[in-house]
Design a protein around this nucleic acid. Sequence first.
DNA 1: TTGATATTTCCATAATCATCGAATCATGGA
DNA 2: TCCATGATTCGATGATTATGGAAATATCAA
Lengths: 121, 121
Amino acid sequence: MEATAVIKALGALAQEHRLAVFRLLVQAGPEGLPAGALAEALGVPASSMSFHLAQLAHAGLVLQRRQSRSIIYSADYGAMNLLMGYLTENCCGGASCAPDAACPPVLSPAKPLHSPRKDVA
Amino acid sequence: MEATAVIKALGALAQEHRLAVFRLLVQAGPEGLPAGALAEALGVPASSMSFHLAQLAHAGLVLQRRQSRSIIYSADYGAMNLLMGYLTENCCGGASCAPDAACPPVLSPAKPLHSPRKDVA
DNA sequence: TTGATATTTCCATAATCATCGAATCATGGA
DNA sequence: TCCATGATTCGATGATTATGGAAATATCAA
């Protein structure tokens, strides 16, 4: 994933409604949700929602497929993984950045990427 | 981490220079880098870099400390973890979203969050 | 205090982005 | 074909954001 794609993806998520939509889709799973349901869920006019969904799709964060009259949107989990991988890539120059924590990115709250060292704050 | 903080963080990263700075800092590790070095590394005027660093700091993504005449910036790894956790929270409604992949977010390329199912694409 | 260095603040300009009603397009049933 | 439904495109408006030079602030050394 290159920088311009990452910027586009981050910019797409950096907006109230789009962030909410993306999370709904992440939680909805691969089956996704139709545009109308998303608009109603967030209380946003259809034309506005369409604009935001287009942004997310153009950023490669969501997939769309038509099902009869509805257009179903779903999260692109692969893109999400690439995005987060880009941010943590080569963390701490590849060296162990903290004596007690592994550098390879792990999102689980129980195993944070690493804790800042005291001598830094 | 609440939505407004996440939006601020994502918005801060959704800009060419700021994304580049953040990655430099992530790779630099907890020791961080002075503002001047960042400006020079990216070929950006000092005043512009200062603006971008302020954005990152205000978004809670970087820490700053003064060291003599320099101001040293470093990545806030805790914030980064919270940010990514927010995006993947309650993925697929907590249910196993793919029969062969675990849902808890894992960034390692070898163990992606999960793969989209064929019947979805 | 004077001078040099490092960084930030101020300011005006230009560019990008969000909103939403109205019009348009696509689909499917009667 | 006609109509209803679901969604997108168009267009004007208002708001936010990026840029960089000049001036101001902070630190340190002599």
